[in-house]
Simulated scan of single mutants.
Amino acid sequence: MDLLDIRNLTIELDTPQGQVRILDRINLQLKPGEIHSIVGESGSGKSLLAKAVIGVLNPAWRLTADRLWWRGQDLQALSFKARRAITGRDMAMIFQDPAAYLDPNNTVEQQIIEAIPAGDVTGTFLRKRMDRKTRVRQLLHRVGIRDHDKVLKSYPFELSEGIAQKVSIAVAVAHRPRLLIADEPTTAMEPSTRNQIQRLLTKLAVSENMAVLLITQDIGSILPDTQNLTLLYCGQLMETGNAVKLLESPAHPYTDSMIRMSLNNQSQLPHKARLPTLPGTVPTLRHLPIGCRLGPRCPNAQKQCVIAPSASQREQQLFHCHFPLNEPSS
């Protein structure tokens, strides 16, 4: 059974210019232990989708879905209190700027202790206190922090960017969530630190059988063991499926462009070569194109693209495009 099952999720917003569809019929399935990466430019709706999963959307936004299930339970049918209980118990989220989300008034030790469920420690007051401190040290070791004595006494502003991100991961996994959402956790980090965080997330997914939903702008920074990959653009799903298949033979022009624009490919360009970028910019919500929203920027666009393409299937890939790439020869 899928851990998370989303079918045709749509988020709409009322504006003075009329109703705007911020997310347009998004589908997503996650299994226990799966690493799933969501890739797209800024403004594509990646973080909005994550917020819809954990239930922290703006009340003014209208969410509808044919299915929004967590472990077979309909999240839309739950009360606010019941939804919060599931989110607090089974889900956790880490962010791009950990220092901004860690409490600046408390030490690292205090923040991790607060995240440990009360039921994980038993016995007398002193025994509970000792068990919590032991658990905190174990969590820091698990995320790759060896000098725990120094880090435990530190405040967030005293930590380096890499250590702060590891601490935020320790806080997130303290209650053993079934789903960890990582919203661009390695953006602007130096390569060595970025690789450490990526290896850590992969290790947690394997050792804890925890699903990881990674959100990133650079397709080259997805986790090495990513099983499935989803490409979003301007609130629409462009392509999704097996990560290896998508990277080797993308069907959608947007997927192909994101691969060409990845930092990994740019490092191999000859000196003074032009960067392979899509023309134009992501449109604003007030000026969304009709049909396929990539149309005005797509190198393969034709008149038919003013009609929204239906979903097409090819092996382990699902895409929305009238003129797909790398079509198998008949």
Rank of each mutant, 00 (worst) to 15 (best):
E41R: 11
E41A: 13
E41V: 01
S42H: 02
G43Q: 03
G43I: 03
G43A: 06
S44L: 03
G45M: 05
G45Y: 01
G45S: 00
G45Q: 04
G45I: 01
K46V: 01
K46W: 01
K46Y: 02
L48H: 06
L48I: 01
L48V: 01
L48F: 02
L49I: 00
L49K: 02
A50P: 08
A50W: 02
K51F: 02
K51H: 05
K51L: 00
A52C: 05
A52G: 05
V53S: 03
V53K: 08
V53L: 03
V53W: 06
I54N: 07
I54K: 07
I54M: 08
I54V: 05
G55M: 00
G55D: 00
G55L: 00
G55H: 00
V56S: 10
V56R: 02
L57G: 03
N58K: 03
N58T: 00
N58R: 10
P59Q: 05
P59S: 07
W61R: 05
W61T: 00
W61C: 02
W61S: 03
R62L: 00
R62D: 01
R62M: 04
R62A: 03
R62N: 07
R62Q: 09
L63E: 02
L63A: 12
T64H: 11
A65M: 10
A65D: 09
L68K: 07
L68E: 09
L68F: 09
L68Y: 13
W69A: 12
W69C: 13
W69N: 11
W70L: 12
W70Y: 11
W70Q: 09
R71E: 10
R71F: 10
R71W: 05
R71Y: 06
Q73M: 10
Q73G: 02
Q73Y: 09
Q73I: 07
D74W: 07
D74K: 06
D74P: 10
L75I: 03
L75F: 12
Q76M: 14
A77P: 11
A77D: 11
L78V: 08
L78H: 13
L78D: 08
S79R: 13
F80V: 15
F80N: 12
F80D: 12
F80R: 15
F80T: 15
A82P: 12
A82G: 11
A82L: 11
A82Q: 15
R83F: 06
R83K: 15
R83N: 15
R84N: 15
R84C: 14
R84A: 14
R84F: 12
R84M: 13
A85D: 13
A85M: 04
I86C: 04
I86V: 15
I86F: 07
I86D: 11
T87R: 15
T87A: 15
T87C: 13
T87K: 12
T87S: 15
G88E: 09
G88H: 14
G88F: 11
G88W: 14
R89T: 10
R89S: 12
D90P: 05
D90I: 03
D90R: 04
M91W: 09
M91G: 09
A92E: 11
A92R: 09
A92D: 09
M93T: 13
M93V: 13
